[in-house]
Simulated scan of single mutants.
Amino acid sequence: MLASGVQVGQLMTIGIMAIALGLDAFSLGIGIGMKGIRLLDILKISVVIGIFHVLMPLMGMFMGQYVSLLLGNVATAAGGCLLILLGAHMVYSSVRGEEASSFDHRTLWGLTIFALSVSIDSFSVGVSLGMFASDIVLTVLIFGLFGGLLSIAGLMLGRRVSGWVGEYGEAFGGLILLGFGIKFLL
């Protein structure tokens, strides 16, 4: 009975961590969704984010504990810089109008950059996660599931809100990305 209580406690802890990591994908998905996004693109982005939320903690776990302090700060700073660049580009594109090309989530490069920027914090969590996670496969699958589901929710909400915001949706979405990038750097 005690063993199952410990397992439930571990599962709850992993679930809470997965939700916390997935909230980045949710909030940044709102920003991308405000640009206007097709349902197929929402599905593609969410699947890729889910995959990154599985791979990044796995890579972190395999990197080991001896580099956790160094890589935790570097990974967060790199994610923040990526978000600032993406957000600034979106704001610039919306201000310039049709002449400037915006961040394109439909390209492989754009999709990879976006998924990496919302999943980079999973890497640093993965570095320290190996200490108490008894089932690594279950842990990263839960991370991937919540990352994908919360990104769907954020993208859908952003898509819905974009109709209310109109032509300023891309600029507002870029400001959201900028804000989160600055938050990661501070």
Rank of each mutant, 00 (worst) to 15 (best):
L43M: 14
L85K: 11
G110N: 02
I120Q: 01
S101T: 10
E98F: 09
M63A: 14
Y168M: 14
V6L: 13
N73Q: 13
L129P: 00
G9D: 06
G87A: 10
D24I: 12
I142H: 05
A25S: 13
A115S: 14
S162L: 03
V8Q: 13
F146N: 02
D41P: 02
I84L: 14
R96A: 13
I51Y: 02
L178I: 14
L116I: 13
F62V: 08
L150H: 10
S162G: 03
F103V: 06
V74S: 03
V91H: 01
G181C: 09
G169K: 00
I182A: 15
H89G: 03
E99R: 13
T13G: 14
A75Q: 03
G173T: 00
Y92P: 02
M59R: 11
S102Q: 02
F103H: 05
A88N: 10
V137W: 15
L177W: 02
M156V: 15
G50D: 08
G9M: 12
A75M: 11
M56Y: 10
K35A: 07
A153D: 03
H89C: 09
L157A: 14
I51C: 08
D135W: 15
V161D: 02
G9N: 11
G147L: 01
F143M: 05
S101K: 13
I14N: 01
D41Y: 05
L155Q: 02
M59L: 15
I32C: 04
F143E: 00
V91M: 07
L150S: 06
V140R: 05
G181M: 09
L58E: 00
V165T: 08
V127S: 00
L82N: 08
E170N: 06
G15M: 11
G144A: 11
